[in-house]
Simulated assay, not measured.
Amino acid sequence: MTTVTLGIASRDDITRSFAAAMRGEEQGEFISFATPELLLRTLTQLRWDILKKMTGAGAMSIRELARRVDRDVRRVHDDVLALINVGVLERSDNGDIIFPYDAIHVDFTLQAEAA
């Protein structure tokens, strides 16, 4: 099973992870956002529904995805483009869309703000 972790990472975090990967340390599959707000703005409820339907499902057309989430094709297309633009979804050679993971783990911590 291939799991992707959606989380929050600063540029320094990403640099450290890249350096560790270059040393041969396994890093796993990550899709990082700069802030929790950006993650939550990107992964709206409707887009989360798309990811749930695509997790482990393989490549499919936008029309098929729209049928599975019971939504208008044009609106699903807009959400798919937003997810492609941030690197969450991919497009195959034949134009289908892919979410190449069998599971999603979301990881971030909300801390009290400094007074």
Score class of each variant (00 low, 15 high):
L40Y: 06
Q111H: 15
I98N: 11
R67I: 09
A112N: 10
A66M: 02
M1V: 12
V4E: 00
I14E: 06
I50A: 04
T55V: 05
L83D: 01
F99A: 01
G87W: 06
Q111T: 09
Q111K: 14
D13T: 05
R67K: 13
E90L: 10
R91Y: 11
T3S: 10
L39N: 04
G58M: 04
R16L: 07
H77C: 01
G7R: 03
I31F: 03
E113A: 12
L6T: 00
L81G: 03
F30P: 00
T44F: 12
R47K: 14
D12A: 15
V106A: 08
L46I: 14
A20V: 03
W48N: 11
W48H: 11
G24P: 01
S92C: 13
L51T: 05
G87S: 07
E25I: 08
N85D: 15
T55S: 08
I8Y: 04
R68T: 02
E37V: 13
R68K: 13
P100M: 15
L51Y: 05
G56Y: 09
I104Q: 03
A59P: 04
T2L: 10
T15Y: 08
T5E: 10
H105D: 10
V73L: 04
E25M: 10
E29T: 04
G28D: 05
D70S: 15
L89W: 00
D107N: 12
T3C: 12
D12V: 13
V76Y: 01
L110K: 13
F33G: 01
I50Q: 02
R67F: 06
T5K: 04
T2H: 09
F99W: 03
R11E: 14
I14V: 15
D72V: 06
E29P: 00
T3H: 04
A20S: 06
A34T: 14
R74V: 15
A57N: 10
L110N: 06
Q27E: 15
T15N: 12
S10C: 13
A9P: 00
E64W: 01
D49K: 09
R91T: 13
D70H: 13
P100D: 07
F18S: 12
D13C: 13
